[in-house]
Design a binder for these strands. Structure first.
Length: 808
DNA sequence: GGTTTGAAACTTTTT
DNA sequence: GTTTCAAACC
């Protein structure tokens, strides 16, 4: 309790405010988590509130975990009875207990984005919808928004009357929802909406939880959507002790249905609400705060507040303009290496932020080359990887036989010789008889026209039934072992023997580890509880903090985090603010949300902030010329250390260097470098000059290397490098300037007269490190070199591109 | 009928 | 550079 003495007056007021609604407007870095945990401790210690009568809701598991830890540390006895959880897991727990009251089985499956898409494809197919005109994604996004607003298919249809497009969408929504229900499945949005429905339809359940949760706290309240608002209001309906914490300036999830009005009009909804403002920032230097304040001041309709700090001054904010995204990545990598070698910071202090996930690749590449350890948050979720998803689908199909999406996914994985035609017959049979796909499988022999395929499908059905039987008696881990054994899933990968297959096996091992950890830490671990846990993990949750690595993530993922050193990359009009926001339906609102995102980014930095802008960026094979982001202009000039870097050829770059040389044809900043491609002009908006050869560099047979430090890291282990699919056969498909193969255009590496290494020599490669030359083949224009690398394994590459150096 | 291969389209942010 | 769709191939 002596912790309270360390709070400032406003924090103390918020932490010790008694009953009734309470709105805490907490600016960035103002210590809101501290206030929340202190409040929980105070409620229990001073107000004699029972720990199990307290509910604290967050958005991510990570935030929940942190709060849990701090509550445990501060509250002591009884702390674990405090319910700290995310919106989705809270609803999950409630629904696992009462979903049967609203027509679901308790073992319902939770569908992620991939599952939703799959299901929507089936829906569109069954309704004969031309997805060339109406995209699945569009349907899903409208349905998602509807659910966020608590509109069920019936209400939606009513509101759609008169608008033919909306009526059509309404029909799709109805069918989608019907199939979800048939599959005994819910999507993410259902979790919230169905819980609200449960409360509305079953007053006894609602009053049970109202009585259970007498004190409710909601973190990041500005990100709640309408459904979440209703959920919270219902829960707080009896006792009225609702404490919400948020910052309207950090509302960045409107695309996900977040309704900023929830926080802006809290005082209207709860007229007796007490409002406390936390404006003292404990995180950043005065310059960084000043920059953040100046940017956000351009937004209208905010709750007035201005952050201030007593923190000492720090280094100036840098803004660096470079020519290309490649130069940007190079600058960031070099700057990090410099700072770290000077001892001003450690790798673990640094975060590189960007607007879109697509920007991460080039940064990743540069960091890898510079030997800087990094971890990427986001991109491909571990649980979304093919091999993981396959095995999880087995578990899902076992747990919930009605999960048609899961059964469809695995019926021919690994290959069992069951093809599309057979599956179509099973589907038709299931539809006619109104049974699930699994049941149709069980009746394989009765299916008309199936022929001898019934032997294969029957075998598969038998396997699934055997596994289901076993599931009741063994642990999840043992069950997975059996699946892997029976299906020879890993065996198959082992036979493939490629680097990619090895990676997949590693990921499967990692999945097994996760299951073991889960079963060890969860007393009542069941297959269903494990699957729920797994489907509700977010990318950000994998961040462990002890890694000693530079972190790369989107600005969205960075919310709620702080770092001593922050790089905000891609500060360009069209990227950030994104063109989607600029040219969307409501440009004003779009820009304001982007600006809030910028505010979030700036306020992540404690000590040193570096902003970077590239003039040119490759975008879907075209180069776009961008102006510097307006947000840079919104920062007072005197706060910025402006620098402009000239493009220059960094000798070490594999591939990009060459593309760079060719791409310069149009001339940059009025100067003419090397050859002139002739067409295209700099400065007139979008440059669409000759084909830049994006993606086709390294057109030799480079293989699809898999890099990254350990595939257990989220995002690492992603493969890049040219070659692989899309460019099979070793011949460059991509066009160079004027449609000719890039290799033939000027500036591309030429075949060397001779090579200064031969078979058996030790060589070094800029990315793969050291290795031994195994084979040299003269293929006309160039030599093809095969090298067995110590770390990266056997690689084939073209000598002119590989830039191998003989080791002395 | 099933599998493999090649070409085309597509990239905001996510629980 | 990745994922999806159609055609060729077995």
């Amino acid at each position: 309790m002596n912790e309270l003495q360390q709070l400032n007056p406003q924090q103390l007021e918020a932490a010790t405010y008694g009953d009734g609604p309470l709105l805490i407007l907490a600016g960035a870095g103002s210590g809101k988590t501290r206030v929340l945990t202190n409040r929980i401790a105070w409620l229990i210690g001073e107000k004699q509130v029972k720990p199990w009568n307290i509910l604290a809701i967050t958005f991510t598991n990570k935030a929940a975990g942190e709060m849990r830890e701090r509550v445990d540390a501060q509250v002591g006895f009884g702390a674990d009875s405090v319910w700290v959880a995310t919106f989705h897991s809270t609803c999950g727990r409630i629904l696992r207990r009462f979903a049967d009251r609203i027509g679901y089985q308790l073992n319902f499956t939770i569908y992620d984005g991939d599952d939703q898409k799959q299901l929507m494809r089936d829906v569109c197919k069954s309704m004969n919808i031309n997805t060339g005109v109406y995209k699945e994604k569009m349907f899903l996004s409208v349905i998602s928004s509807a659910k966020d607003e608590l509109l069920d298919p019936v209400t939606f249809a009513a509101s759609a009357a008169g608008d033919p497009d909306m009526v059509r969408i309404g029909e799709v929504y109805k069918e989608y929802q019907r199939q979800l229900r048939n599959n005994n499945a819910m999507d993410f949005d259902d979790m919230i909406m169905q819980t609200v429905r449960l409360f509305q339809q079953c007053p006894d359940v609602l009053s049970y939880y109202q009585d259970r949760f007498r004190y409710i706290m909601v973190d990041e309240y500005q990100d709640t959507n309408t459904a979440q608002f209703h959920l919270v209001s219902l829960l707080a309906g009896a006792h009225g002790n609702l404490c919400v914490v948020g910052d309207d300036d950090q509302s960045i999830y409107s695309f996900r249905g977040a309704n900023i009005q929830n926080i802006l009009s809290f005082e209207q909804v709860y007229p007796s609400a007490k409002v406390v403002r936390l404006e003292q920032n404990y995180r950043s230097t005065p310059d960084i705060l000043e920059a953040a304040n100046s940017v956000i001041a351009h937004n209208r309709g905010r709750k007035q507040k201005r952050l201030w700090t007593e923190n000492p001054a720090g280094p100036r904010i840098s803004h660096v303009t470079v020519y290309s995204a490649y130069d940007e990545a190079d600058f960031v990598a070099r700057d990090i290496a410099k700072e770290v070698s000077m001892g001003t910071c450690r790798n673990a202090d640094i975060a590189i932020l960007y607007r879109t996930n697509a920007q991460s690749r080039i940064l990743e590449e540069k960091l890898l080359m510079s030997g800087i350890p990094y971890q990427i948050i986001g991109g491909v979720n571990f649980y979304a990887r093919k091999e993981i998803k396959d095995l999880l689908s087995y578990l899902r199909a076992i747990d919930n036989p009605r999960d048609d999406v899961a059964v469809h996914r695995i019926i021919n994985v690994p290959k069992r010789g069951i093809g599309a035609a057979t599956i179509a017959k099973l589907d038709a049979y299931a539809a006619v008889n109104d049974i699930s796909f699994s049941e149709a499988l069980d009746r394989s022999r009765d299916i008309p026209g199936i022929g001898k395929s019934a032997i294969k499908t029957g075998k598969f059905a038998a396997l699934m039934n055997k596994l289901r039987k076993e599931a009741g008696t063994v642990t999840v881990r043992e069950l997975l072992d059996t699946i892997i054994e029976e299906t020879e899933y890993v065996e198959e990968l082992r036979r493939e023997g490629t680097e990619e297959a090895k990676d997949r096996i590693q990921n499967i091992d990692e999945l097994i580890n996760k299951i073991v950890t889960y079963e060890e830490n969860t007393p009542e671990a069941t297959l269903a509880s494990f699957l729920q846990e797994v489907s509700l993990v977010a990318d950000i949750d994998s961040l462990d903090g002890q890694a000693g690595k530079v972190l790369l993530m989107t600005l969205h993922s960075a919310k709620g985090l702080e770092f001593p050193v922050v790089y905000m990359t891609g500060m360009e009009e069209g990227l950030f603010p994104s063109s989607m926001a600029l040219f969307g339906e409501r440009p004003d609102e779009g820009i304001e949300e982007e600006r809030r995102l910028c505010y979030v980014g700036i306020t992540r930095a404690r000590r040193k902030l570096t902003l970077t802008s590239a003039r040119m960026r490759m975008n879907r094979g075209e180069r776009d010329i961008h102006k510097v982001s307006r947000f840079i202009d919104e920062i007072p000039k005197e706060l910025l250390d402006e620098r402009e870097l000239e493009p220059d050829s960094y000798g070490s770059a594999f591939g990009s260097r060459q593309g760079y040389a060719a791409g310069r044809g149009g001339g940059f900043a009025g100067r003419n470098y090397g050859r002139s491609a002739g067409d295209g002009e700099y400065g007139s908006g979008s440059y669409r000059g000759g084909n830049y050869g994006g993606g086709s560099y390294g057109s030799g047979n480079f293989g699809s290397g898999n890099y990254g430090a350990g595939s257990s890291e989220s995002g690492a282990g992603r493969s890049f490098g040219a070659g692989g699919s899309g460019n099979r056969g070793g011949k460059p498909k991509g066009n160079g300037l004027f449609g000719k193969p890039l290799q033939l255009s000027k500036g591309a590496p030429q075949k060397a007269d001779h090579l200064d290494y031969e078979v058996g020599d030790r060589v070094t490669h800029v990315k793969f490190g050291e290795g031994t030359v195994k084979e040299l083949v003269d293929v006309g224009r160039d030599y093809q070199v095969s090298v067995e690398f110590d770390k990266a394994g056997l690689r084939k590459m073209m000598a002119a591109f590989a830039k191998l150096e003989k080791k002395k």
